[in-house]
Simulated scan of single mutants.
Amino acid sequence: MEWFYDNNGQQAGPVSREEILRLIMQRQIKPETLVWTSEFGETWRPASAAGLVSPLTGLLRMSSGSAEHWAWVLLVGPWLIQRLTLLILVWRQIPERDRMGPFSIVAMMSLFLFFISFMLDRNSIRESGKTPPGFWWWLFLPGYFWKRRQIVGRGMSLLIVSFVLLAVNVTEKIYQLPQIEKELQMQHEQTGQPAASSPPTTSGQENQQEDL
């Protein structure tokens, strides 16, 4: 497919799609630059409305398919943030009882990054002309990346890493079970202790003295 573009008020072209994408990458063609191809009929369109530049992300819509950068952010971004936070807290020797506050803030940041990258990755798949996996696949990321690979035709590394991270998380939970059970048992013992016996009342003492 041949493309033409406006170059300081003069028509330039024809050029291939790969060439016009290269010009966009070099900022010689901006999102507002008018472009034309035979599919547009008699109308010239801005590059941002011609299927070349995403108005949402500002990223090129490459003909080879959807980009994977947001998928990688979705997969490892929140995980890395939480791991780095834990390492920093351990390095600074913060007691476990004082870690709840920082972890709550980091958890909110991780959740925000997760959903933003999830929606942007689905948008990049949609912009490539394909239907992204369903929204509820965020509940099980290996399933999401499995469906994603079927749709876009690539992404085996994402799928493998998603299963590896799932295995790591499950292993950590299994390893922590004895400690969790121990903490629960200690809490149960503390709440199950009988109340301390109260001293006898004054009237009871008086009765004992009268008996004597």
Rank of each mutant, 00 (worst) to 15 (best):
His69Trp: 00
Thr37Val: 08
Gln150Leu: 07
Leu141Pro: 14
Gln82Thr: 03
Leu139Ile: 12
Ile105Asp: 15
Gly9Glu: 03
Val73His: 06
Glu206Ala: 10
Tyr5Glu: 00
Ala167Leu: 14
Phe40His: 14
Leu177Cys: 00
Trp44Asn: 06
Asn207Cys: 09
Ile116Phe: 01
Arg22Cys: 09
Asn8Tyr: 04
Met1Lys: 09
Val170Ile: 15
Phe4Gly: 03
Ala107Asn: 12
Ile88Gln: 02
Tyr175Ser: 12
Phe114Trp: 08
Gln193Cys: 07
Leu21Ala: 04
Thr171Trp: 05
Leu75Thr: 00
Asn8Cys: 01
Gly155His: 02
Met25Trp: 10
Gln28Tyr: 05
Glu210Tyr: 00
Leu165Ser: 03
Asp121Asn: 15
Arg83Tyr: 05
Ala107Asp: 10
Glu127Tyr: 09
Glu2Ala: 11
Ser124Glu: 14
Gln179Tyr: 10
Tyr175Ala: 15
Pro55Trp: 09
Ala47Thr: 02
Phe115Trp: 04
Pro102Gln: 07
Phe145Ser: 07
Trp79Asp: 05
Leu34Phe: 07
Arg27Glu: 04
Phe114Ala: 01
Phe135Arg: 12
Glu42Met: 14
Asn8Glu: 07
Ala12Gln: 09
Trp146Gln: 14
Pro200Gln: 01
Glu42Ser: 11
Glu206Phe: 11
Ile94Ser: 02
Leu52Trp: 06
Phe112Glu: 10
Glu39Leu: 09
Leu113Gln: 10
Leu166His: 03
Val168Ile: 12
Gly204Leu: 14
Gly41Pro: 09
Gly204Pro: 01
Ser203Pro: 01
Lys182Cys: 05
Ala107Phe: 10
Met108Thr: 06
Leu139Tyr: 01
Ser203Phe: 05
Phe4Asn: 09
Leu212Cys: 00
Ala71Thr: 13
Trp70Asn: 03
Pro95Lys: 13
Leu111Gln: 11
Arg97Ile: 15
Phe118Leu: 13
Asp98Glu: 09
Leu59Lys: 15
Met186Ser: 05
Gly129Cys: 11
Arg154Asp: 11
Glu183Asn: 10
Tyr144Arg: 05
Val53Arg: 08
Arg61Leu: 12
Gln11His: 06
Glu39Trp: 05
Pro133Ile: 11
Ala196Leu: 08
Val76Asp: 01
Leu111Thr: 13
Ser110Pro: 01
Ser197Arg: 05
Gln193Thr: 08
Arg61Thr: 12
Gln205Thr: 02
Pro142Asn: 07
Leu113Pro: 10
Trp79Gly: 02
Ile151Glu: 08
Ala196Glu: 12
Ser104Cys: 11
Arg92Pro: 13
Leu184Tyr: 01
Trp136Leu: 08
Thr171Arg: 10
Ser110Gly: 06
Ser110Asp: 01
Asn207Leu: 12
Leu34Ile: 00
Ser38Pro: 00
Ile88Cys: 05
Val170Ser: 04
Arg92Thr: 14
Met1Gln: 09
His188Ala: 06
Thr191Pro: 00
Leu158Gly: 03
Glu2Trp: 12
Leu59Pro: 12
Gly134Ala: 14
Met62Asp: 04
Gly204His: 09
Leu166Cys: 08
Gly204Phe: 07
Val152Met: 07
Leu141Ile: 15
Lys173Trp: 07
Thr85Leu: 15
Met156Val: 11
Phe4Asp: 03
Arg27Asn: 15
Val106Ala: 15
Glu68Lys: 11
Glu181Tyr: 09
Leu111Lys: 09
Leu52Ser: 10
Gln187Cys: 08
Glu18Ala: 15
Trp44Ile: 12
Ser48Pro: 14
Arg17Trp: 14
Gln11Leu: 13
Glu127Ile: 02
Pro133Val: 04
Gln93Lys: 05
Lys182Asp: 05
